[in-house]
Simulated scan of single mutants.
Amino acid sequence: MDKPAPIIVRRVRKVAGRHHGGAWKVAYADFVTAMMAFFLVMWLVGIASKEQKAAVSEYFNNPSAAEGRAIVPGGGVLGPGGASDKLVPTANALSIPGGVGPRPGDPGDARARRPQAPDAIARAAAQVEDRRRMEELRHELEAAIENSQALAPFKDQLLIDLTPEGLRIQIVDRMNRPMFDLGSSSMKDYTVEVMHELGRLLVDSPYRIALAGHTDETPFHAPRGYGNWELSSDRANAARRALLAGGLAEARVARVVGLASSVPFDQADPRAPINRRISIVVLNRATDLQADALASPGATGNAIDPVARAAPSHSATAAAPARGSLASRAAALR
């Protein structure tokens, strides 16, 4: 007799899913926060002006609270003045006060651990004082531009910043407000008025100035090979004449150059109107003395110590050029 087949009952135990603890909520909150931050940054970028963006870029290039020590601005320096014009060439930049390397008194400077020579102390003090005077002049000019009826309408075209050479004032073109006639060195009437006003503002400053003319990269050719180099030079000289008409003494002009399109303000768009500009650099004492040293006959190209130049010996004084006492000017800037 066959036995009945056994009945096998399989019981499936259902296990409830474990509680996830809400970890997904944390991840989702992080994602939402990141998206909010992203759209906030995009909104700020959209409403910021070019000068504000340049200032933010400069902060990230040099976020240190201490004053930078580079002899020339970094490659990313755009604003508000754009790239460095370098109106006064320097053959030995490292010997210029304020150049690369530790400053007197810094913890990393070996000179801070031993007595300093009197000339080094005097040079450091003169540099600090020179910087302070440039800062004061900058604030005075900014306040004067705000309060001047002639300059206030053009304050968006007047850019002021400090460079290793001194205080730079730039008058730039706008899309519908050029400074000069097209392809010409003839100034617009309002440009002449701006230059006259700047000449009156700078008349009381003891510093000399250097001027540079800039064009955009748009090709320009006139008869007899006249191009952007000649045009930028002629515009720089037109600016010089307008400053003199405003009251600036001719002896205060140290250098006038034309740089064509070689130093664009907006490197991303070489043909932008803002690249057409006039740069007026109020030279600090070290740059002024360096310019005279390089321009003097028989100059070797080595940087001259401003303190030594400011206090020459009797023999040096006798051989000094007749065009104004450089020693007295340097002493007046202390």
Score class of each variant (00 low, 15 high):
residue 25 K to A: 14
residue 207 Y to A: 04
residue 225 G to S: 06
residue 187 M to G: 05
residue 289 L to H: 01
residue 153 P to T: 04
residue 40 L to Q: 03
residue 133 R to V: 01
residue 307 V to D: 07
residue 191 T to E: 05
residue 205 S to W: 12
residue 291 A to W: 09
residue 52 Q to Y: 13
residue 327 A to I: 05
residue 231 L to Q: 01
residue 228 N to W: 00
residue 245 A to R: 05
residue 11 R to E: 13
residue 227 G to N: 14
residue 201 L to T: 07
residue 203 V to L: 12
residue 215 T to S: 13
residue 330 A to N: 01
residue 83 A to C: 04
residue 3 K to D: 04
residue 311 A to L: 10
residue 187 M to E: 10
residue 47 I to R: 14
residue 172 V to F: 03
residue 237 N to A: 09
residue 274 I to L: 08
residue 52 Q to M: 14
residue 255 R to G: 02
residue 109 D to S: 09
residue 70 A to W: 12
residue 241 R to Q: 11
residue 303 A to C: 02
residue 41 V to R: 11
residue 122 A to T: 12
residue 246 G to R: 06
residue 263 V to F: 07
residue 271 R to W: 00
residue 101 G to F: 05
residue 105 G to V: 09
residue 36 M to A: 15
residue 253 V to R: 00
residue 91 A to Y: 13
residue 216 D to G: 01
residue 285 R to K: 08
residue 16 A to R: 10
residue 332 A to Q: 13
residue 220 F to A: 02
residue 78 L to D: 14
residue 96 I to V: 14
residue 223 P to N: 13
residue 20 H to I: 10
residue 81 G to P: 01
residue 113 R to F: 15
residue 92 N to S: 14
residue 309 R to V: 04
residue 292 D to M: 11
residue 314 H to G: 10
residue 281 V to C: 02
residue 299 A to T: 09
residue 280 I to R: 00
residue 44 L to E: 09
residue 61 N to V: 00
residue 143 A to S: 15
residue 49 S to R: 10
residue 191 T to D: 01
residue 165 E to N: 11
residue 316 A to G: 11
residue 95 S to L: 14
residue 226 Y to F: 15
residue 168 R to M: 11
residue 32 V to F: 08
residue 236 A to M: 02
residue 32 V to C: 07
residue 176 N to D: 14
